[in-house]
Design a protein around this nucleic acid. Structure first.
Length: 321
DNA sequence: AAAGTGACCAACCGCGCGTCC
DNA sequence: TGGACGCGCGGTTGGTCACTT
């Protein structure tokens, strides 16, 4: 399948945009909308390819773009989401209103990545570059990384939960679909605690319980519980009155300081205290599913990634156990 | 003052995916 | 069914500016 040339066409301008070109593009889009990007340049009187116009609009001219320095909150969000999502800039950008993926990517590459490197952390894996810090065994180092990853994930999770208006209870039942399974929530219990909240050290903990999980080909129903903390991640499934536990990872040998919020560490110990919890009575009520229904809808990709982590072979649609 | 260097960031490039015909 | 097309994404490039030598 041949790809049609875009900017290679003769006579099409490349490089920096002039104020006149910006004005033409702005005026056209304000009046007609962008419509088809390919046909836009000719209609707008621009000697540019559609792709160049789209880029200029989405990254620079769009009226809902916030420019200028990133604040601490934005930095923290980027770091947390990068730990969670990797280089998925567009996904990260959806959680930073008015910032473009390009801007976030640039900011990461020029500022945040360097900060990680300075701290001796691999900016790609968020893993300490030295495989065996402080003389820990390789296994312990790996577990330490996992704990850091999970800690960052939990922080992001708490934030996402808040942003997803998790507290806005709704009466409709919640369900989540993944690899042919349907998960319905029975109970949710999201709590994230930081050292700042409490004098004594306490691992962040996050638990979600699912019920009415049904495997479509066999019709087998089961309950499932997914528990995460900074020291481990466990998946439990109830099948024919037996609870099957599956430890995704477990960290028993913790490097000192690992339980500190990962992003707090990165931001020089300025971890923002955050906690989220829902009242248990309300959680256990009939409408308990609704509170995380929004969460599921808003964070489907995130949940997909978790379940892919649990069950990394989507193609064969086999039961998890 | 000129050359060298590094930081920053707008813009480009190539690829993958979804849709249309 | 598969080629053409349109679009979005992530990686990379290159121009500009500030600072240093």
């Amino acid at each position: 399948m041949g790809r049609s040339p875009c900017c290679d066409k003769l006579g099409l301008k490349k490089g920096p945009w002039t104020p006149e070109e910006d004005q033409k593009l702005l005026a056209y889009i304000e009046e007609h909308g962008h419509g088809s990007w390919r046909s836009l340049p000719e209609k707008a009187g621009l000697h540019r390819c559609g792709k160049s116009c789209r880029l200029r609009w989405t990254n620079y001219l769009r009226p809902d773009i916030k420019r200028g320095k990133f604040n601490l909150q934005e930095e923290q969000t980027i770091i947390q989401l990068h730990a969670l999502l990797g280089n998925r800039w567009s996904a990260i950008a959806t959680h930073l209103p008015k910032r473009t993926d390009n801007e976030i990517k640039n900011y990461w590459n020029t500022h945040l990545k360097k900060r990680l490197v300075k701290m001796g952390i691999d900016p790609v894996t968020h893993k300490p570059k030295n495989e065996t810090p402080l003389g820990l065994s390789k296994n312990a180092a790996t577990l330490s990384h996992m704990a850091q990853w999970e800690s960052a994930r939990l922080e992001a999770e708490a934030r996402l939960a808040r942003e997803s208006k998790l507290l806005h209870y709704q009466s409709k039942p919640s369900s989540y679909h993944h690899h042919g399974f349907t998960y319905k929530t029975l109970l949710t219990n999201w709590t994230t605690k930081t050292n700042q909240d409490q004098q004594q050290l306490e691992s962040p903990t996050s638990t979600v319980s699912f019920s009415d999980m049904k495997e479509p080909s066999t019709g087998v129903s089961a309950k499932m519980e997914f528990t995460g903390s900074s020291t481990g991640l466990t998946l439990m499934k109830e099948h024919e009155n037996d609870w099957i536990s599956s430890t995704i990872f477990e960290a028993t040998q913790m490097e000192e300081g690992v339980e500190e919020g990962f992003t707090g560490l990165l931001l020089g110990g300025d971890t923002l205290g955050r906690s989220f919890s829902a009242d248990k009575n309300e959680r256990d009520g009939e409408n308990s599913g609704g509170e995380c229904n929004n969460y599921f809808e808003d964070n489907k990709n995130y949940l997909d990634s978790i379940f892919n982590f649990v069950d990394p072979s989507p193609s064969d649609s086999q039961p998890m156990f």
